[in-house]
């Protein structure tokens, strides 16, 4: 007898806790029973149990204050992973030559280079770059997120340390001032189906010089590695659950390169693709898009590390 396996979507609980109106970005109430139904349909009984631990108010609507506090706590734990996995150093390795190439070869109407972190969460990347003064005084560091509570917390943290960066509750592709370089970490796997090429296509505007989006590298080891690492380093079961789901949802190099080609004329590249990296040394790797005229200066700036780039020459 033939049996058929129906592919069910893998869901992260934290994605279901908050919803926004796409036009106004206003927060929309989330009915816990609706979110539970989605997790149950995905066969995720653990996710359902985790969701039930989130308090509700009248009408079975998730308590926004409790959700915000929980997500800030989870993101704070998640930052520890980013720090241990040296995501700041990894991004800096690419951004330094990229920004140098932009400075030399991309028109900048007001002389400013804006690096925008899409879906910045608590803004670790932006704050790390600011704290280590990596990119220079002509670079504005801006973190953008749809979740107002995370943006508020990111700004509070930046102010507490006197860091030269800012955070905005907005759609990263509809900012008052255009981005020169888009960056992100751990965001790409949230885009499924046609949303992935649409995400890249939104970065193809004339002001964009490049993008550099880090996400979990897909290897046979990554789901078990994610389980082990989240188990060892995160306390909140919601963070542990979503961490493993993230690894299972991550896109492979070919999928990302294909999707990134939607940002033409930017040239799609992958740094440290699976066949050119050690999975124990590269847990996250980026997909990049670079203006054609900046590709060679970027490669030259990378030096020997340019051999780790894959994609169109």
């Amino acid at each position: 007898m033939l049996t058929y396996r129906v592919r069910v979507p893998l869901l992260e609980v934290s994605d279901l806790l908050v919803a926004h109106d796409p036009a106004t970005l206003a927060r929309v109430p989330v009915v816990r029973a609706d979110a539970e139904r989605r997790l149950a349909a995905a066969g995720d009984s653990r996710g359902v149990r985790l969701l039930r631990s989130v308090p509700v108010r009248d009408g079975g609507i998730l308590d926004e204050a409790a959700v915000d506090a929980r997500l800030i706590a989870v993101h704070t734990e998640l930052q520890r992973l980013s720090q241990e996995l040296r995501i700041g150093d990894r991004l800096a390795e690419l951004l330094r030559p990229l920004i140098a190439a932009v400075r030399a070869g991309h028109p900048l109407p007001d002389g400013r280079i804006r690096v925008v972190d899409v879906g910045c969460g608590l803004g670790f990347l932006v704050r790390w770059l600011a704290a280590h003064d990596i990119l220079g005084d002509d670079v504005d560091l801006i973190g953008v997120d749809l979740h107002a509570a995370l943006v508020h917390e990111a700004q509070r943290l930046a102010d507490a340390e006197g860091l030269r960066c800012r955070f905005v509750h907005a759609d990263a592709f509809r900012l008052d001032v255009p981005a020169t370089v888009f960056v992100s970490t751990g965001l790409l796997h949230h885009f499924r189906g046609p949303d992935l090429p649409a995400f890249f296509a939104a970065q193809a505007g004339p002001d964009t010089a490049a993008f550099c989006h880090y996400d979990i590298a897909t290897t046979a080891l990554s789901p078990i590695g994610a389980w082990m690492f989240h188990r060892a380093r995160m306390r909140d079961p919601l963070g542990r659950h979503d961490g493993v789901m993230s690894a299972r949802r991550a896109h492979d190099d070919a999928t990302l390169l294909t999707a990134a080609s939607a940002a033409a004329p930017l040239v799609p590249l992958v740094f440290e693709p699976r066949e050119r990296s050690n999975p124990f040394c590269t847990t996250l790797r980026p997909v990049l898009g670079v203006r054609p005229g900046l590709v060679e200066p970027f490669r030259a700036g990378l030096g020997r590390a340019a051999r780790r780039l894959a994609g169109a020459r």
Partner: peptide, 9 residues
């Protein structure tokens, strides 16, 4: 303490 303080320094 780790995972409870999101400051950089």
């Amino acid at each position: 303490y780790a995972g409870r303080d999101a400051r950089i320094r």
